[in-house]
């Protein structure tokens, strides 16, 4: 398969959440979240009431994918930052560690300049965390048979039937 599966454990998940929480605070943003390029939300921090984060994640990934396609059409590798300005709220989108999308939603209590500045700092921190995740995944894979037992190795037809029984 083209991209390896993303497997996230508690330790890294907590680190990611801490990094997002700091970014939200330092940039005065309302919401900060991380989505993988396929549209699945990885983590989110901030006030998410009245926010459909699943749809937001999927549309963000669609947006980034379409913009990537546009970039390649005109001979660019990518447009690494997307910014959408609204009357009240704004969305700042950037790519982290080549595979995940960092989204910051902010209003007049912050500014584009501040968000960009703080995003840059958070990006290098997140880059490091994702490097660890990739290394850990590679390690787990190499001693797969010894230590790591997938919780799904015992999955049965009945388990799957039960999912559709309601």
């Amino acid at each position: 398969m083209s991209t390896p599966d993303l497997v996230l454990y508690d330790e890294e998940f907590q680190k990611i959440k801490d990094a997002l929480g700091r970014l939200r605070q330092d940039s005065n943003a309302n919401v900060v979240f991380l989505v993988d390029k396929n549209g699945q939300q990885i983590a989110a921090m901030g006030d998410m009431t009245n926010l459909d984060t699943t749809s937001l994640a999927s549309l963000t990934a669609g947006n980034v994918a379409a913009t990537d396609g546009l970039a390649r059409l005109i001979g660019e590798k990518e447009f690494s930052i997307l910014f959408h300005e609204g009357e009240k709220d704004n969305i700042h989108i950037s790519i982290v560690a080549q595979r995940v999308i960092l989204v910051v939603i902010f209003d007049e209590r912050s500014s584009l300049g501040l968000v960009r500045l703080r995003v840059r700092r958070a990006t290098s921190e997140l880059d490091r965390i994702f490097e660890e995740i990739t290394e850990k995944a590679a390690r787990e894979k190499s001693n797969l048979s010894v230590e790591f037992e997938s919780p799904f190795s015992e999955i049965t037809d009945d388990d799957i039937d039960r999912l559709f029984s309601e």
Partner: peptide, 9 residues
């Protein structure tokens, strides 16, 4: 690409 989140199960 299946995304397995052990933290959030």
């Amino acid at each position: 690409m299946t995304f397995i989140n052990y933290a959030a199960r």
